[in-house]
């Protein structure tokens, strides 16, 4: 099982890196999703897989029924999933906004000239002053 999960993690990593290297912004975001899943799978794997009872303390007991699985990797992976979810939601909103504003999702088209920054900030200032 460990070997299988390691291979899955590796495959997800490879696919994710391939996607991140694409020029399309949406594909890059999908690549990030894949890598984050790969890391979670590997985290789970590195915390050692055990075929055992869930780490829950039933009513009346003070300890979980032994043998029980290590709860720490589960807690850590859950935290990582939650954080990953939040960042991903932001990345999607950002991708959507940049598509709306820039009219493209091709990262090669997102080359800015430093002069533009000055011009834009000046325009913004004038807008505020009015």
């Amino acid at each position: 099982m460990e070997t299988l999960l390691a291979i899955i993690g590796g495959a997800l990593f490879a696919a994710g890196i391939y996607m991140v290297l694409r020029r399309n912004l949406i594909k890059a975001v999908i690549g990030i999703i894949l890598i984050s899943n790969a890391v979670n799978v590997l985290f789970f794997n590195l915390g050692r897989l055990t075929k055992a009872n869930p780490p829950l303390i039933w009513e009346g007991n003070t300890l979980p029924v032994s043998p029980f699985a290590n709860p720490l990797p589960q807690a850590l992976v859950l935290t990582a999933i939650v954080i990953g979810f939040g960042l991903l939601a932001f990345a999607l909103v950002l991708a959507y906004r940049s598509y709306k504003e820039l009219g493209t999702v091709d990262l090669d088209d997102m080359k800015m000239d430093p002069v533009e920054v000055s011009a834009e900030m000046r325009a913004e200032e004038e807008q505020v002053n009015q």
């Binding site: 939040g86 939601a89 999607l92 909103v93 959507y96 709306k100």
Partner: peptide, 12 residues
């Protein structure tokens, strides 16, 4: 948080 994201995506 989830509603903030959903609403901001739904606006347009």
């Amino acid at each position: 948080f989830i509603l903030a994201v959903i609403f901001s995506l739904e606006e347009e």
